[in-house]
Design a protein around this nucleic acid. Sequence first.
DNA 1: GAGGCTAATGACACCGGGTGCCACCGGGCA
DNA 2: TGCCCGGTGGCACCCGGTGTCATTAGCCTC
Lengths: 200, 200
Amino acid sequence: MTAIETTAPGLPAEGTRARVERAALDLFTLRGFEQVTTDEVADAAGISRRTFFRYFATKADAVWGDFTAHVARLDELLGSGDPDRPVLASVCAAYVEVNDYAVAELPLLRERMLLILTEPALLAHSQLRFAEVDRVVARYVAGRSAAAATDLVPRLVAATTRAAATTAFEAWLADERSALGTHLRQAFAELTAGFPGLLR
Amino acid sequence: MTAIETTAPGLPAEGTRARVERAALDLFTLRGFEQVTTDEVADAAGISRRTFFRYFATKADAVWGDFTAHVARLDELLGSGDPDRPVLASVCAAYVEVNDYAVAELPLLRERMLLILTEPALLAHSQLRFAEVDRVVARYVAGRSAAAATDLVPRLVAATTRAAATTAFEAWLADERSALGTHLRQAFAELTAGFPGLLR
DNA sequence: GAGGCTAATGACACCGGGTGCCACCGGGCA
DNA sequence: TGCCCGGTGGCACCCGGTGTCATTAGCCTC
């Protein structure tokens, strides 16, 4: 595997990050996360192993894209939401909206999430990234319910809505033709209603 | 760090596993998970590094005790529960019961969970162990609601109740004097009622 | 235009978790 | 006594991740 487009040292390195992400996603999808070494990813992207770890803190981080921006957008959506809507409904709505991707982005999202939720090493790592989401949600719930972000209910809302969202993603991945939003709405509906179908 | 009680090779190795667990827990609590090498743990327990990895698949597994038995007990509790009780309530009750520890075991449990939920590497790893719990719960819910264990609702119940239980653990760890069962019951009450306090 | 600063890169050495392999040791058994 | 067997330790190796240093190119200043 040699580089398609080699970059010289000292250059602004335009698009290098995106190129590495593509190489990583391709290789991981093709052969499995653990079966691919960081050396191979770096090689395929035309950079050195050392440089790979300057773009991504860990091997796992190469599959997440700009997740920090994703979390920031969720934070903004929560902050700019309708203050008259109930807290829990606001959280769910923000989750649905932040995950309302353009059709063209769906294949990439699918590839990412499939890796994250099926590869054990990536699933483990996801806990650390999703914790960023939890903090944002807990802070929002705390702010609207006059509680501390470390109290039980804010944490509880954050943890359970995130669990519901993740489960919706799994259902979406399992059904190639379905819409992510549908699964998210259904999951949140079940959650907020206390699972009405399970009263027996 | 030298071994208190060295064992000869070829011996039945009685209590070695427990001794390694204690050494690991002590060192991790004292200096932090990442700051302790497996070499040091093995040394403190009087075995070689190579043998450490025969008792535990990973460094992280040394803090979990016999978690497989814990999951098995949850499975049994679910299977032997009152079939007239609603499904969701049964799951919550089983969670409460399986976590009803004797007072003498609480300090050890606290030490374990504090490490697991505070140390990033262990928190990430926890996702893999907790997934075992999720499978058991999802299978139970599926069995009682005429659905497949891979359907949305069984997975959803498993993921959200587990998230609630984990959050209850966090609350318990944050309050030295509180009872774990209280937090669990409160968390499940909020969850099953759809967070009634957040209607504004 | 020469020199100096900066940022990105790559080579190298090193650490630590995890694994495969093999030699060794002790006990049980024919 | 000779054999097998299971727990063990030593060793070499792979791979993810990090610290250090030299190199390179662009840019800014004089």
